[in-house]
Design a protein around this nucleic acid. Structure first.
Lengths: 215, 215
DNA sequence: AACTGTGAAAACTTTCACAGCC
DNA sequence: GGCTGTGAAAGTTTTCACAGTT
């Protein structure tokens, strides 16, 4: 298989969510034009994205919602449940624990850790917060994905401890670039960075409102 | 000025954060090699990114930390504070309210809205949750950026109401593509999508652990 | 007629490599 | 000698446009 762009993989997730919506509405087929319109991309992009993985449509008819949905689930590895651990039970960590979207997609958070002794033993969404010292032993027990919601100062070190247990996928919420071996899949969600991109957009292409305020 | 890639703008945010770290440590200058090492990119990339906006370094010496930091702040529009409103006071919304990283960078959340009457009137981080009906009047009072932390089903409609008030920048946490006029800056943070990218990585390049479990 | 799948072209982004300055 | 700034080259992603299928 050709190398698949990361942007293609992200769009497959979007397509899948859209299909699940319309799937519940009983629509049988969907065209690349319709999918593109809803996903905010182009029909050619939809077809090219899918073409990396095979042929899923019927010429002249479009895609079966049920079949394409199943195919995307398989491609994305969502047919099985992944075992997830959350490191850091601060405000963001606790919000993630209650995030229904994760569970709905088969990502089950099985363990929570925090370095603060006052948090250890507390219950969050049915899980008891465990001491950070127990990270290694619990993760080695078969966790697939670790979510890091720890302070910047701790992130690199915690990530290395996580990787040492054999975990090969990390979702990082600390706003710092992590340096990890190439065989570890890493995604960083940097919310302050996204706000700064918006700031750049406002500052460099001032809207009528911004211009008014500058006066 | 040439068109600047979005990825360049994102990296500028990363550089700025790194400079602020080393700035506090009293380092006077930094080279593109050093900055790249810490940002997880290449020296050529750092220099090219900066070259879109001018020349900031001294040949043979590198970049003054203080000067480059100030320049990046100016480029990103971070010299002024932006007025931010949060729509949605659910778990994610409340976590964002307490997120110190936003305030530290000059993004001050001034108003919070929720559609649930039971939440209206509650205090979160010193702000009283306002009824969703007040969205238009408050946002028109000079809010620059809206953060959307509302359910998927409401996101598009809320976004349109926000845009109608003149706001031209939205940070969206609802996992759905929003369709908005081209002059509105939009960033979507889709956490479930990031997890699914990790799932894809695990499923398509199985680690020793995953392979073991498959047996 | 409607719509997919896909090579080829275009657009965009990153990397290279080196002239030029401190 | 060390390091920046930048055109040119390489690599990647998107768009085009059309042959082919139902």
């Amino acid at each position: 298989m050709r190398k698949v762009p990361g942007s293609t993989v992200s769009r497959l997730s979007v397509y899948l969510r859209l299909l699940d919506d319309s799937g519940t509405q009983g629509v049988a087929t969907v065209s690349s034009v319709e999918l593109a319109r809803r996903a905010g991309t182009t029909a050619a992009q939809v077809r090219k994205d899918l073409s990396f993985f095979g042929t899923f449509g019927k010429r002249g008819r479009g895609y079966s919602v049920a079949e394409l949905s199943a195919a995307l689930r398989s491609i994305l590895g969502l047919e099985r449940g992944w075992r997830v651990a959350l490191v850091g039970a601060g405000q963001i960590g606790r919000a993630l624990l209650g995030y229904e979207d994760f569970r709905r997609r088969g990502f089950v958070i099985e363990a929570v850790f925090d370095a603060d002794p006052r948090k250890v033993g507390q219950r969050c969404n049915g899980l008891e917060v465990q001491a950070a010292e127990r990270l290694e032993v619990v993760l080695a027990g078969g966790i697939d994905i670790a979510i890091l919601a720890v302070p910047v100062a701790a992130a690199q070190q915690v990530a290395e401890r996580v990787v040492s247990t054999g975990v090969r996928a990390i979702l990082n919420f600390a706003p710092v670039p992590l340096r990890l071996p190439a065989d570890v899949a890493l995604k960083t969600v940097n919310m302050a960075l996204e706000l700064e991109s918006l700031s750049y957009a406002l500052a460099s292409a001032p809207s009528a409102r911004a211009a008014r305020r500058e006066e």
